[in-house]
Amino acid sequence: MDAYLVAILTIAGIYIILALALNLQFGLTGLVNFGVVGFFCLGAYASGIATESFHAPFVGGLCVAMVTGAVAGGLLALLSLRLSGDFLAIVTLGFAETIRLIFNNEDWLTGGPKGLLIMTRPVLADYSRSANAWMVLAVVLTGAVLTLALMLRLAGTPYGRVLRAIREDELVPATLGKNVFVYRLQSFVIGSVLMAAAGSLYAHYVQTITPDNFTTPVAILVWMSVIVGGPGNMLGSVIGALVVVTIYEGSRFLTPWLGFLDAEQVSALRFIVIGTVLILVIRFRPEGLLPEPKHTPVVPATRRPALKG
């Protein structure tokens, strides 16, 4: 059982990184990125190809993934960041779907639908299976803690305040001489890099990746982590990711009590619950479990709820 908990915590750690990255883009800056799973996928494949086809070490793969994430994030941002919220959402969603199609079709590069087998792992050689599992967990949690530290730092600095100001009303920081576009671009690219890094960790953890691993439901889970945890609150995303992974894995142990439903209905029910919770939270508690801490400005001003804007 302990080994199973290690496995769940590893997955949770990866979701925490994804949720933090999305929280930077959406929670702080107000960018609606539905292409989370696209960057995740890109990072996983970039890292896998670097280590398997070019024999890079794990750290090399991780770096390749992050650079790829930065380039893709930058290009996508240049194309679409001038658009308003809903169009950005559509373009990023399209990006994720297109990435998946490309990786599914270009067998020569990615192995196509049969997937990419990854032998490189972030572990020391010649240890037992359970020791390996703990080492992977340690690597993933280190990544999650570093990301959290970076995000908490970012959110507290003047830089983070400018991002928040852009989210609330881009005209104000623009009037103050801030280049809104550059700030948005930076926020989007940092988020993309972190998502790609999460993809790299995921790839070397599961060891077989196929395009089927990167479908839209994954993005829904990450969005749910951010919304449930509280957009704009970094600790909230950590809690949100833990809640989501617990619901997702925990429902497995409920199956014996749902004997009157067939397996297909159980898996459908899981998504019905997740989707409904998401809608209910947005309607009744848009600030999430942990609301964004209020920053008392020098001149008191009224604030709108976090999801508006």
Partner: peptide, 21 residues
Amino acid sequence: SENSETNPEAAVRAARKMIDA
């Protein structure tokens, strides 16, 4: 018994539970 959902991602998670738990 677990459901593979004919999907490698779901199957890997189910297999992990079978092997580790």
